[in-house]
């Protein structure tokens, strides 16, 4: 077997650098998901409201975010904001903004469908007991939706972690970029490094996403 570049990974702190890149990607998705959950719950509740204009606008937002590839959204925020708004966003910031916009839309829709699937008489009987609208949500409706939501939002985490690979395209040094740099640096002494390094990155992503997917599936079975 010819040298396939695994030695490059063992050189210096190269493997550590890959892990660091992966960590940067995971960090972006964690921050995004932490922000998406509260925003998503708000959006979901808003979407079940009666105001037609609000419902139309939120629906428009949801559908636009959903139909656009995430990379297009990244381009819109990263390039668009720089040139047309005069901001100079760092790649990481742009990535978090896009992932929060996206995560809020997905969460919002999950919350909305969970809320509307709660039988109407649950609302009515809660009101009949004299609970105020906010109390009804807080004590009756949200606890019931939470069980349904948790596995689905964990699924969203895997999707986000996978999507963080895209931030490479707007210049964030994440795991793929770190790998690219290593391959470049060792072009002479280890010309086949691309095979080993990209394979290891492939495995790393799998090792991060797979346990999360399994956890989501397990919860879904238990609570579904």
């Amino acid at each position: 077997m010819p040298d396939l570049g695994l030695d490059v990974l063992l050189k210096g702190n190269n493997f550590f650098r890959l892990l660091e890149g992966l960590l940067a990607a995971v960090k972006i998705s964690m921050v995004s998901i932490a922000l998406s959950i509260p925003f998503g719950v708000l959006l979901g509740i808003t979407m079940t409201g009666k105001n037609i204009l609000v419902r139309f606008l939120t629906k428009l937002y949801l559908e636009f975010i959903r139909i656009m590839p995430q990379l297009v959204l990244l381009f819109l925020v990263f390039f668009g904001s720089t040139r047309s708004l005069g901001w100079n966003l760092e790649g990481e910031t742009a990535a978090v903004i896009v992932f929060v916009l996206w995560g809020t839309a997905e969460m919002g829709d999950l919350v909305r469908s969970a809320l509307t699937s709660i039988p109407k008489h649950q609302y009515e009987s809660s009101r009949a007991l004299g609970l105020a609208k906010r109390q009804t949500y807080f004590y009756i409706i949200l606890p019931q939706t939470l069980r349904r939501l948790l596995p689905l939002s964990i699924n969203l985490v895997t999707r986000m972690v996978k999507t963080t690979s895209l931030v490479l395209m707007i210049g964030v040094v994440e795991v793929l970029k770190a790998g690219q740099q290593m391959i470049e640096a060792n072009r002479m002494n280890s010309p086949n490094a691309a095979f080993g390094i990209y394979l290891v990155i492939f495995i790393l992503y799998f090792l991060v996403c797979w346990p999360v997917s399994m956890a989501a599936r397990r919860l879904e079975k238990k609570w579904g």
């Binding site: 963080t164 690979s165 895209l166 793929l176 492939f202 992503y205 799998f206 996403c209």
Partner: peptide, 8 residues
């Protein structure tokens, strides 16, 4: 399902 297309 647990790896990104870009990495693939």
């Amino acid at each position: 399902r647990n790896t990104p297309l870009l990495v693939q």
